[in-house]
Design a protein around this nucleic acid. Structure first.
Lengths: 224, 224
DNA sequence: AGTCTCCCCCTAACATCGCTAGGGAGGTTC
DNA sequence: GAACCTCCCTAGCGATGTTAGGGGGAGACT
């Protein structure tokens, strides 16, 4: 073993985990438009074809990134507390994670999130639903509904400002909408001015999430 | 005026509308991966740089496509009927339109849909909410919530099968999920088998939509 | 009629992209 | 020592979005 000498000869060996980490860094710092396999390779002090030894394609890399990010969602371990509260917390946590990786969030629509971590998440959600009395079919569809809502919301939210409740881009948009001709778009103009204030989109997200969970509850009740 | 002679000398002059129509055709027939400015130009019997006289960039073209598609959503004209029923119908109609243009639907997350048609849609939705007693702020956020849900759902739905209730890719996915090791993913496996049957995702969409509208209603009530 | 101007499409080309082919250094296994 | 496997390399292909700059043709003005 070569000891951790001070004249460390550059970064260690490549592997999928290191590639994924560097890719997430590159996405976060430079944005999705600036992302390319060549740039990623450069960040790893490597030439781009070497990446293809570890990863089949850029698209597979993206799948890997999605799954990596999903892996950071904290899953409830026990099985106590009402099912809807647990799913609510999980939905909130998932959104937080996605907003921390806006470019990855935008990658998700159009993909099926069934890597190892995505499957673990599905297993957990469906398990919560089944133990709460949902039959297999309703549990599966409930999982889909929850995921579609959270991922879809978060992905679009990134277009209105990157962080949670981040006013940065939101104010710009509300300024644009507020500047529209009031005779043609009276309602848009009226609502635009208040779009930037608190509460931000977090409240709207929670509202919709609660509504969906309530809908699921009614669905379960009517199916027995 | 040169009359519409039988030996029509190829397609007429270019304009943004013709470009958009051809782009939508190309997306639908060949898919998003096969789309390029060069291919689009070829479909129009034109060289690709000519497109840039009419359109600033590919990205602006995509904005145009999104707005064009939003323009085909039928907006309720009168103002009768309960607000939530009207928004429900509008949400269902929007989803139908998006599923008819899956690639455009996948384009939407990450964009702000505020072209002319997108604004007309916003104007209508916010108007319905305000006339139903929502204050300006709640109306604006209610519009956002509705759009986020419908667009997010539809965009992800296209990853699970392109058409509404299209079993094509859905059965493939449920087969994959059903083939997982049952000891490790018991809940996923249990739910997977039923994922392909009726009712399809339309029911889940409606369920979530209703839940969200109910949530909005409670929100309005608690704000007065 | 001639000229001017603007519209609109063209050719050519640049930088960059994802990805493949094929080579070779270095360690591991018989 | 030879065969093998791992893993990174150079070289390069075909394609992409976009820009630079040219030119033809139709209408407007003098």
């Amino acid at each position: 073993m070569p000891l951790g000498l001070p004249d460390d000869p550059g970064p260690a060996r490549l592997d999928r985990a290191r590639i994924a980490r560097a890719a997430l860094d590159l996405l976060r710092t430079d944005g999705a438009d600036a992302f390319s396999m060549r740039r990623l390779a450069a960040a790893l002090q490597i030439k781009s074809p070497s990446l293809y030894w570890h990863v089949r394609s850029k698209d597979e890399l993206f799948d890997l990134l999605v799954d990596d990010v999903l892996g950071t969602v904290p899953l409830p371990d026990g099985d106590d507390g009402p099912w809807d509260e647990r799913l609510r917390d999980l939905g909130l946590a998932l959104r937080r994670v996605l907003l921390a990786h806006p470019d990855v969030a935008r990658l998700m629509p159009g993909r099926t999130p069934f890597g190892p971590n995505g499957l673990a998440l599905a297993e957990r959600v469906i398990g919560v639903l089944r133990r709460a009395g949902f039959d297999d079919r309703l549990a599966g569809y409930g999982y889909l509904l929850l995921m579609f809502y959270v991922v879809g919301f978060a992905a679009q939210e990134t277009a209105f400002g990157k962080g949670p409740d981040n006013p940065e881009r939101l104010t710009e948009i509300s300024r644009f909408l507020g500047g529209l001709p009031a005779d043609r778009y009276p309602n848009v103009v009226a609502a635009a001015g208040t779009l930037t204030g608190r509460p931000g989109l977090t409240d709207r997200f929670e509202l919709g999430l609660t509504g969906i969970l309530n809908g699921l509850d009614r669905d379960r009740a009517s199916s027995r």
